[in-house]
Simulated assay, not measured.
Amino acid sequence: MAIATSGTCLEQNAWICGDYVRTRSDELWTATREHISLTVTAVPIGLVIAAVLVLFARRYRVSVPWIGGLTNVLYTVPSLAFFALLLPVTGLSVTTVRIGLVVYTLVILFRGLLAGLDAVPDDVREAARGMGYGPTRLLLTVELPLALPAIMAAIRVATVSTIALVTVGAVIGHGGLGNLIYDGLNSSFKSEVLTASVLCVALAVVADLLLVALQWLLTPWRHRRRSRRRPGGGQPEATTA
């Protein structure tokens, strides 16, 4: 991959071009901001909807395969076709993209939340009930903390996949960095395609690292337990005089 010298890289249409970043910084920032906005609204909305579905499914277990099947069907619908179905209602707006992104998170979040809560040992639930815990207190103070690693894993996958799917919104003009990738491909503008693609990957990596850090902060007991462990599972060696 050849890198053109500064001042001529735009004219030579080089893949890596510092002049492009400097002269189009406002355009890059606007696209990045829209990409982030779509992601940070779609994932939380999807999480809330998935949580409601999980609570309903746990109360009425017969509905689990129906809800799971519906989310699977919606996930298999191609994004372009899904946008086309929404166009008569929401038009060529950012709402169309946001609805599509929320729907695509449901299959990941519903499965992750349900699997995490179902993995809580029954004896732990029985012990909590024996101590007088009601359903709400049991869920919030016992089940959710124990299921948090599985839930956070689902949120991480949903977030990274959403960042990737945002680019598809470029077909209706609301794809964040996908707009630049789409325009660059149409015009064979190499530096625009590469820069927007790298930024998209960087967003996914940063988002995943932030969620890992959040999980670390929300589960301090797991770190304390690891710190008490010794290699081989034995006791600390006694000091000699």
Rank of each mutant, 00 (worst) to 15 (best):
T159Y: 04
T159F: 00
T159C: 05
T159N: 08
V160E: 04
V160D: 03
V160P: 06
V160R: 03
S161Q: 15
S161Y: 14
T162N: 03
I163A: 02
A164I: 11
A164C: 11
A164S: 15
A164P: 08
A164Q: 11
A164V: 12
A164E: 10
L165W: 08
L165D: 07
L165N: 13
L165M: 14
V166I: 04
V166Q: 05
V166E: 01
V166Y: 05
T167Y: 01
V168W: 05
V168R: 01
G169W: 06
G169I: 06
G169Y: 03
G169K: 04
A170K: 05
A170R: 03
A170C: 09
A170E: 07
V171A: 11
V171H: 07
I172N: 01
I172F: 09
I172D: 00
I172L: 07
G173E: 09
G173C: 09
G173Q: 08
G173A: 08
H174C: 07
H174L: 01
H174A: 01
H174V: 02
H174E: 00
G175K: 03
G175F: 00
G175S: 02
G175V: 06
G175D: 02
G175M: 00
G175Q: 04
L177A: 00
L177Y: 02
L177S: 09
G178C: 02
N179I: 04
L180I: 01
I181N: 03
Y182S: 10
Y182H: 12
Y182E: 10
Y182W: 13
Y182P: 08
Y182T: 09
D183F: 14
D183H: 13
G184H: 07
G184T: 01
L185P: 11
L185G: 13
L185I: 15
L185F: 13
L185E: 12
N186W: 13
S187L: 15
S188H: 13
S188V: 15
S188F: 15
F189K: 11
K190Q: 15
K190P: 12
K190E: 15
S191K: 10
S191N: 11
S191D: 11
E192T: 10
V193Y: 06
V193Q: 06
V193A: 07
L194M: 05
T195R: 03
T195F: 02
A196K: 01
A196L: 02
S197P: 06
S197E: 05
S197W: 00
V198G: 02
V198I: 11
V198Y: 03
L199M: 09
C200M: 15
C200Y: 08
C200K: 10
V201S: 10
V201D: 05
V201H: 01
V201M: 12
V201W: 00
A202Q: 08
A202S: 13
L203Q: 01
L203E: 04
L203K: 01
A204G: 00
V206T: 08
V206P: 05
V206R: 01
V206N: 03
V206E: 03
V206Y: 08
V206Q: 08
V206L: 09
V206K: 04
A207Y: 07
A207N: 05
A207E: 03
D208L: 07
D208E: 10
D208P: 06
D208S: 09
D208I: 04
L209V: 15
L209H: 14
L209R: 14
L209P: 12
L210G: 09
L211W: 02
L211M: 09
L211I: 10
V212S: 12
V212C: 11
A213N: 10
A213E: 13
A213R: 13
A213G: 14
